[in-house]
Simulated assay, not measured.
Amino acid sequence: MIKEIFEPTLKQNVTKHIIEALPNWFGRPESNLEYINDVKDMLMFAYYENEQPIGFLSLNPHHESTIEIHVMGILKEHHRKGIGQLLVDYASRYAKAKHYKLLEVKTLDASHPDPYYKMTRDFYLSVGFIPVETFKELWGKDSPCLLLVKPL
């Protein structure tokens, strides 16, 4: 079941719980703290099973036509069960209903050999995102950023 979370502290707690359980994707404590702080002011949807959050997605509007998946995570034991696709579909329907034209996401570019982020890119491609541009310095020279968009 997908629920929208409104309470800022609950948003932060859900984010902290899930990203701390995913060290292969969220291995930088300073970045994790930024995500945990950022989500309190963002729109958030979480997937619950047995009253426990097992996945979440937060959205950050950037422009009247574009909204971004700021951070997303699914507990590892629930990967490849369709939960990520459900969350992206839900966010896409929400964004389209609010008259956004594009859903965007940033992730680590393929020029970086990280196998976990290859899985992330493959996921986003599988749910309709299109690679747009690589920013080689946005996150620092060792972390090339790939911008992907999904037309709504």
Rank of each mutant, 00 (worst) to 15 (best):
Y117F: 13
A110H: 13
Y90F: 15
A95W: 00
F123Y: 09
T107V: 14
S92N: 15
E34H: 10
H78D: 06
V14Q: 00
T9Y: 11
V132H: 11
E4R: 11
L22T: 07
K98L: 09
V132N: 02
E68H: 06
D114F: 08
F123S: 03
D38W: 08
G55E: 11
M119H: 11
K40R: 15
E49R: 14
L108Q: 03
H79C: 14
D114K: 10
I74C: 06
K16Y: 08
I54P: 12
G73E: 05
E68F: 13
E137S: 14
R28N: 14
C145E: 11
E133W: 12
K118V: 10
K11F: 05
M72P: 03
P29T: 09
E34C: 15
V71F: 00
Q85R: 13
K136V: 12
E133A: 09
N13S: 10
Y90R: 06
N50D: 14
D41N: 09
Y47H: 11
L147M: 04
F56G: 01
D122F: 03
K16P: 06
P23S: 10
H70Y: 07
E34Y: 14
E7H: 05
C145V: 10
Q12P: 08
P53Y: 08
F56A: 01
H17D: 13
I18H: 00
P131W: 12
L148P: 01
F129E: 06
T134P: 07
I5A: 00
F56E: 05
I74R: 00
Y90D: 13
E137W: 13
A97N: 15
D38M: 10
Y35E: 10
F129A: 00
E51Q: 12
H112M: 08
M72D: 06
P61K: 07
D109Y: 05
K11H: 09
E7V: 07
T134G: 03
N24Y: 09
D41G: 05
A46P: 10
A95Q: 00
L103A: 14
P113W: 04
K3W: 09
D41F: 01
H70G: 07
P23M: 02
N37M: 06
T66W: 08
R121S: 08
G140Y: 12
D89M: 12
K40L: 07
N13M: 04
T66H: 04
R93L: 12
E104D: 09
T134N: 07
P151I: 06
I54W: 05
L152A: 00
W139N: 15
K150W: 01
F6G: 07
M44S: 01
G82M: 09
K11Y: 05
P29N: 04
K141R: 14
W139V: 14
G128I: 02
I5Y: 02
D38E: 06
F45V: 15
T9I: 15
L108I: 08
S126T: 11
I18D: 03
Y117R: 03
Q52V: 09
I83K: 01
Y116W: 08
A95E: 01
E77A: 15
D122G: 10
H63T: 13
V39E: 04
M42E: 03
Y116K: 07
L125C: 02
E64R: 14
N24K: 15
L148M: 14
V39W: 02
